[in-house]
Amino acid sequence: MSTDKHKQEIFNQTSVLKPGDPAPDFALRSTPDQLVSLREFHGAPVILAFYPADWSPVCGDQMALYNELLPEFRRLNAALIGISVDGIWCHLAFAKDRKLRFPLLADFEPKGAVARAYGAYRQQDGVSERALFVIDAEGTIRWSYVSPVGVNPGADGILAALEALPSKQEVPA
């Protein structure tokens, strides 16, 4: 990596994407043979939950809570995606252990590229921030929040952001 590029990336990590910014597209693996791209979700809101690592206690609680709230997210027509730099095999084992019913994407190679694109990469730790993004049906970020790494941000902010979307289409639970 050139020094300039390196500097650029360190600079990038401090600028978390904000409401009004277009959500950068991506295509990451959820299983060995399945790629998930943001584009696939066009037409409905998406919740992106970046988290530092599978298995760490806070992540586990956070993902368990979101798993519990899938019916609420569905009622608001929104899809939930978890992203970390862990590889797919790690994700599969974690999802199976915690019985998670939403995709975990591997931001694994090049490491953290998607987190960097969202300004949610922790260069010094080599993992993503604990960052949440609510993206509307047109692919624009409507809400973002970065939690201290050790703090589970809960879901109240996500629900409030989804409910504030102008063109929300509620479907029966």
Partner: peptide, 12 residues
């Protein structure tokens, strides 16, 4: 109960 908790930021 659970949803009322989520609304006030109960996270665990």
């Amino acid at each position: 109960d659970l949803l009322s908790g989520v609304r006030c930021g109960v996270n665990g």
